[in-house]
Every structure is written in C-alpha cells, then in structure tokens.
Design a protein around this nucleic acid. Structure first.
Lengths: 336, 336
DNA sequence: GAGGGGCGCGAAATCGATTTAGACTTTACA
DNA sequence: TGTAAAGTCTAAATCGATTTCGCGCCCCTC
C-alpha cells in the first residue's frame, strides 16, 4: 500500500496538517521542518493520492481528450494522431495526465461535458470530432477550459493549421508548373474544408485560371474509396483535369490507385497532390507532393495554450494560433 | 456545479446513506424508495463524483496505458494504434476510462508503477514499449492487474499475435512460388522478433531451403531507413536474394524504395513481403504481400481479459491468448 | 402481550488529502 | 516589563461518496 500523509505524520512526529503544509510550501512552516519532512517523504517514497487531492482542491491535473469521429477512424487517423502525440508529450511534461472522454459511465450514458465533470477534468482537448455535434458544442461552451484543433469556437483556445495559405501555395505551385485544368477533391463539410475550398477558388481566380464545375467535387477525409471514385469519375470527363488535388495524403492513395487502374501514369500522364504531409507520403514512391502541417507542433502549442488557460483563467483569451504549413515538392506533380 | 448526493438527500427527504444505497442497489432499501430516488436523480442530472467514489472504494474505473517506446514513435505506431483503438472501444463499453501513464507528476518523477498507484488505476495495458525496461517489469510484477500485448510476463494476462504460424505461412507461401533465396530483415530484439526469426529458420529447414547468413539481418521496427539500408546492403551481395521479408509493413516502404533506387522492379525483379497488414499496405500499389494481424481484435481481447482479471481476481489466470494471423497475398511476391 | 425476526432507514466513521481558525511560543518594541 | 506582532504548529472541518452498525417499527408466533 502506498504511503499516506498520515504515515508521514506519525513518522515525523508532526500533525497531518503540518506535513501537508510543508510539502505544499506554506510559509508558516519553518525551513528546518520543511526540509525534514521532505527528506522523510522522499525516504518513504511518499506521493499524494490523486483522488483525495482532487476531491478537496477541485484540480485533477487531468485533461480530457475527445477523440472520436463519426466515421470511427479514431486512433487510426494519421494526422490527428500526430497532433495528439505532440499534445501528449507537452502536457505530460507540465505534470498533467491525459484521459479519453467518452459517453459511457458504468452501464449508463453521459454527455461529453458530464463525463468531464464526472472525472473532474481540468480541461479538454477537442480534436478529431464532428465539431457540429451538439454534445461537442455543449462542452466547448461550458465552464471547462477547452482547446480545439482546426475549428474555432468563441471563447475557446484554438490552434489551427493555415489551410488558406497552404492551399494557395499549392495551387500556385502547380499553376506555375503550367497546369491550368486543376481539380479539387475536397473533404466533408468543416471549417478546414471551407478554408481550403474558398482559398482554392480565390487563388484560381487570382491566377485567372478557369474553374470547371466538374473539377470540384466532394470526397471524404481519410477515406481512400471516396477519393478513388471521385477521381475515377473525373477521368471519365471529356476533358479531364491534368492535376488533381486530393482531400489528404492518405485518401490520395485511393485516388492515385484509380489513376493507375485507368492505365495512366503519375506524374507523366496526370499530376496529383495530397495534403497533410504525413510520414508515409514521403516514403512512398513517387513521393507525394503535398502541404506539410506540423501536427506535432500544433499539438504542442495546443497543450501550452490549454494549460495557460487553466492556470491563468483571468488572462484575456489570445487570438487563435495559426500554424503555417509548408509545401513539399514531391514527385507527383510534373511540368504540364 | 454538479449535483451531489447531498442535494439528492435534501430533495428526497432521505438520508445521504439511503440515497447511496438506493443508487447502488442495496437490498435494505424498499423497491419504492429506490425507484423514487432514481427518478429524482435522473431529473436532477445526478452522476457520482469519480474521485470521491474512488477514494472510498479503491476502484477508479480507470485503466492506465503504458505506451511509450524508446524510439518515441508512440502514438504514431500504426500497428499499436490499431490495438489501442480496439482496446479503447471495448473497455469504454465496459464503463472504464483510459489514461496514459507517464513518469512525471507535478514537477517530479515517478515510476510507471507509482504513477498507476498515484491515480489509483484499476489495471494497466502495456503495449508499445521496451518490455525489458526495468520500470515496465516492475509494473508487470506488481499488484496492479496488467495485460500485455505480444510479450508474456509470468502472472500477467497476455494477448499475442501468432507470429510463429504467421511467419511459417509466409515462408511457405513464397517458397511455394519457387523462391529459394529468401532473406529476412528482422526487428530489434523482442519476444516477437524471437518468434518470427526462429519460425523463419524452422520453416526454411523443414522446406530444405538454404539459410544464407547474409540473408538474415537486423533492422528496426517501424523504421524505413533501417530497412532501406539493410535491403541496400543485400542487393550488393554477389548473389542477392530473390525475396526479402521485412520487419513490418511500414518499414517495408523503405526497403522497397531501396529496391527501386537500385533500378529493380517489384515484383518482376525481386519480391518483398511485409508483416502486420496495416491499412496502407493494401492501399498502395503494388499491394503488399503481408501477414495481417487483427490488431483491433487483439486490443479487444486484451480489454476483456484485463477487466475479467480486475473483477474476478481470484479466478485462475488463463493461458495467453494467441490470435492467428492471416496471409494476405498481395502483388509484391511473384513466381520465381 | 411479550419476545423474536425481518424490513427499511439513519448516524457516523472513513477514504487521504487541504485549509481555516486558533493556540502557543518567541521576538520586538515602546 | 508588558503587549503587540511574528513565527510555528495543531485541531477540526471539509470535499463527496461508501459502508458498518444499530435503531425503530411492524408482524408473526406462542
């Protein structure tokens, strides 16, 4: 059994409260006593009981992670896993633990918000979810400090990837290589999709490139099949595009496969690009042209912001942080 | 503020203990009262405070996950993420939460075991770690119920993939296609590596195939560069192998790249196979020949075993569960 | 009608910490 | 020298639950 504060009290010949104060740097404990208590605590291998402390202080040093999308990719989502990994490293370094939030308790059901309250979460990270889910909205607007990734709720901290400039750079790059018939397979409705699609239109307009209605179509993020069929459709057009931008790197694999199946070569016959810059995109051949989003850093920044919000709740909420992407010139886009 | 049991007590005109008993199905509360309390609890949106309950009962309904390997792939490890995903779904369905175990607490350090105690974990999943790490061993041999993936500790529940039969099937398959110069790039030392390597030797012997010393070499799991260089080395041999088995699917991408760089084609000039059967392996072209391990199911079974162990501690420890793999005949191994 | 046995509920201790209020000792100062 | 002010520590309440023990009450039985 772990050593309790009571054990320390007995061993030191001091009251329980004196021990607690000594360990928590209260000023009404002499330097001498404090040092003595610390020494004994170390010797006996004492560490506080998290639940007892949390019960009294309302601080659990535990952060909830809402990480379930409707499509159930969950922990298999490459981009978000990288975000979560960065978040985890950073927040653990600051003394917090990470617990997944779900909607069950014992045999019953609980909303995300109540699950956070149930465990006394100090804050929550919302990533990889449907941000339009009412339960997600409820949590974001509650008293629980929340940080979101790639979606802005009023009153919440937020870190987002700069999808506008990423898409702009990408379009400019392929345009500069001579492509004019550029297609976009975008993901399902979300803030991210919104930024990318509108940036796509904007940039195409700025470059005086024609926007063909059939060239802009909808797929699903992280879903190879949806990109496969979207691309297959496009290839059947009388005048197919010469370059196709996919929803993301992983899904791009499906789109690329459709191209190969159609007997075309990448990039000799048709160019493609992804988005995200996940690890595999740079390991496969041909190396994927894509926009790298520093997911690890995004997670890290999210952790910093959330902890600041928890520990300094009265500070003004800073503007959402925008993390710039970086164009990776791979081997899948070729001079047109 | 959440509703407490005291609020319920006032509202119902019953003692706090009566409320608690009613909600916990004690037999000394009348059916009528029980129903009444439940109804009011529902109306007021009551749910218990996890820390208060855990403090008293020593049951946190929280499971620790040790998930940090020395190589820091952590949450980016495709195979283990799939295991964790299956584990998470299953265990959440049984009313438990998942918290990552690390080695910090506030500003100090804590062993994995003490971190579990600190949070009052009901049990722990050990996956994706160096199983020879002394702290991991300490946790496995402690009073905390533990389930491990792909490594057997005495006294612990365990679910493992059948690496012996998987490797056997794979070797037989490529041999049957006429390959005799079969190479193996295996991963770093571990129980899994051990099974695969010894099964490789066994099967080669059974098939009366020659084992060339230079054909068996060491790489690192999940590391494309190590497989790349291992394969590059082999290709320089006077008589290179005609088929190379890699540490795993992801790392195989590096090995395959080395082959392409050397101006060879897959599988026309040389055959390759991976291991794991992760999602991307079946999306890339050529589709990778590999052994599929049902990671989701492995995680799920691990969850079931762990919970059983927690809830029925006196039951005899069942033998480790061995989950069979399944050969996926892709497009990267060809008739020799 | 007195004793015995359920039944239904309440009082109080408890888990392991934190924190307020107060007590006692020593020092400081007029 | 007396009193105020520090300086150090203790006692006890508290957080929100669970659980043991015991107390009435009703009914049954002899």
């Amino acid at each position: 059994m772990p050593v309790t504060i009571k054990d320390l009290s007995q061993r030191c010949g001091l009251s329980v409260s004196a021990i607690s104060k000594a360990l928590n740097n209260y000023t009404d404990i002499s330097e001498e006593t404090r040092a003595y208590v610390r020494k004994v605590a170390m010797e006996m291998g004492y560490f506080p009981n998290a639940q007892a402390r949390a019960l009294k202080t309302n601080r659990s040093y535990n952060i909830g992670v809402v990480y379930e999308d409707g499509n159930r990719y969950g922990l298999m989502h490459y981009y978000f896993n990288a975000v979560l990994d960065g978040f985890k490293r950073e927040i653990e370094g600051m003394g917090y633990d990470l617990t997944f939030i779900n909607r069950t308790i014992g045999s019953g059901q609980l909303s995300y918000l109540n699950h956070c309250r149930y465990r006394g979460m100090d804050g929550a990270l919302i990533a990889c979810v449907d941000f339009y889910n009412p339960e997600v909205v409820e949590l974001a607007q509650s008293e629980v400090p929340v940080v979101t990734i790639d979606h802005l709720f009023s009153g919440c901290s937020c870190v987002m990837s700069d999808n506008r400039s990423g898409m702009r750079e990408l379009v400019r790059y392929v345009a500069q290589l001579g492509h004019t018939r550029i297609a976009l397979v975008h993901g399902e409705y979300s803030a991210v999709t919104d930024s990318r699609v509108s940036s796509f239109y904007e940039t195409m307009n700025q470059l005086n490139l024609p926007i063909v209605k059939e060239y802009v179509t909808s797929g699903l993020y992280h879903n190879t099949e949806s990109n496969r069929s979207a691309v297959a459709q496009m290839l059947k057009l009388p005048a197919p595009p010469t370059c196709i931008l996919m929803t993301d790197d992983f899904a791009a694999l499906g789109g690329m496969d459709a191209i190969v199946q159609a007997g075309l070569r990448i990039p000799e016959d048709i160019s493609v690009a992804g988005y995200d810059g996940i690890q595999i995109s740079q390991v496969i051949r041909p190396r994927l042209t894509t926009v790298f989003q520093d997911a690890g850093r995004i997670g890290q920044e999210a952790a910093k912001r959330l902890v600041h919000r928890i520990e300094h709740p009265r500070d003004a909420l800073p503007a959402p942080m925008i993390v710039a992407g970086q164009l990776l010139k791979g081997e899948t886009v070729r001079q047109a």
